[in-house]
Design a protein around this nucleic acid. Structure first.
Lengths: 244, 244
DNA sequence: GTGCAGAAATTGGTTGGACCATTGGACCAC
DNA sequence: GTGGTCCAATGGTCCAACCAATTTCTGCAC
């Protein structure tokens, strides 16, 4: 027998019920990110549950980054919600060391290559034009400021993920990106970090425009490889300076 | 001005303080995953905070999958904790249609191949032995029950992710796995779903044992390709039957 | 002693009510 | 307008119970 055919009854699921009701409310009211939710006291009254229960439910959502609570002000929606969301709490033990950063790059290497290949397969003419536009903006910023620009660089990559047709790429890589940059002010002291990756943005774009999935994949791999090299150089430098 | 030079002050941080103390406790007692934490009442007393505050803190950890609460039994550690853990909750919008399932497979294809390759590079002799053991169990189950066994199959794959040395692989692929199986009782009516993937488990294992990253990658790609084929066959069948 | 049903203790889940700290707007003096 | 004070609204914390699920103990039948 399929054990899923008889799910365990949920006699106690107050928090989840509250969240479910809240999803319904958000959708019914068409609340957008940034807007304010009802106060805890009102929710408790409306849903006929204790305010404490409401708080536990909201604490869950807060931990998931779906809402933000501001004492004295209210609770605000931070992201879109839908009934069939899947929450994936990524936990990276070890934090700010070299290993963790390298791990985010391993994930990104795999996904970046796949996204570039899919993009090359599926891009329409207008898609390609848009990617080239982002590339121009990025190269412009690079020359003007004589260095990689996180902002414009990121937008170029996002354009690729978008054209890949699979929103999961953007979501997951964005998570890796944030994980990476959370420890990235300039802790590793590599001044020209990212410089080496610059030329590969154009080559990726060219392979996509040529509808060459394998070529796009290869160029994406080269790009990530340069970032990995930068990271290793930074780590070596750090190790050296901490051994004095 | 760097806007980071003047971060907002944190006047209240009771929950975080509780979690910080709890991290210290877990490390001091060298608690392993599976072991039980002190009861909420004891924690409240020891930390001189309300039980409510303790509960909010634990709710956070529960949402992050670090801890599991069982009414009447206790609160149990589910994963290793460290002071400098990094959490990034990722929420994926799920869908139950063919496209969504295909998208999870695209992600999995990229990650599965990379994980297999890394595994082939990094596996020790004992790692290989462990993977072969899981493979034997899976094949045994396959022959006994004459069909793919989700449970044993999944354990085999997990063994590979583990040996890859990067916990993110397991975390992300597990999410894709759940997303996939959430709408998978047998909705597509493909009886022998998964049969075609069977032989590739052994070939992957062989390439890993031979320390052949590229070979392992190729076999992993073939495995995912069979699943994609099954999915497409199921979708075609479904389309046909719904057109009657 | 063994085995098992039922009582008792333990533990997380929920409730209601109270008070504190922060916020943001209203109002006022200048 | 500027700056200050006051005040109501809101999230944060606390307390003291009680409920519900689980575990442990107890005592009886055998």
């Amino acid at each position: 027998m399929d054990q899923n055919s008889l799910p365990p009854i949920q006699t106690t699921a107050r928090d989840d019920a509250v969240l479910k009701a809240l999803v319904g409310f958000v959708r019914a009211e068409a609340l957008q990110p940034g807007e304010r939710l009802p106060t805890e006291r009102i929710l408790a009254e409306r849903l006929k549950v204790s305010r404490n229960t409401v708080r536990e439910a909201l604490t869950r959502w807060e931990g998931l980054g779906l809402v933000e609570r501001r004492q004295g002000s209210g609770t605000y929606l931070k992201a879109a919600v839908s009934p069939d969301m899947l929450h994936l709490p990524l936990t990276l033990a070890g934090g700010n060391d070299f290993t963790s950063l390298m791990q985010t790059l391993e994930i990104r290497r795999a996904l970046e290559a796949e996204a570039a290949a899919l993009c090359a397969e599926r891009a329409s003419q207008s898609d390609i034009a848009e990617i080239e536009r982002k590339l121009d903006i990025m190269e412009q910023a690079f020359r003007t400021r004589d260095g990689m620009s996180s902002e414009e660089d990121w937008e170029f990559h996002q354009a690729i993920y978008k054209v890949s047709g699979n929103p999961l790429f953007e979501q997951i890589i964005a998570a890796m990106h944030e994980l990476f940059h959370r420890f990235w002010e300039h802790p590793l002291g590599v001044r020209d970090f990212g410089h080496a990756s610059f030329p590969y943005h154009r080559t990726i774009c060219e392979r996509i425009a040529a509808r060459d999935p394998q070529g796009a994949r290869d160029e994406a791999l080269k790009l990530i490889a340069t970032v990995e090299d930068d990271l290793k150089r930074g780590a070596a430098k750090l190790k050296l300076s901490s051994q004095t």
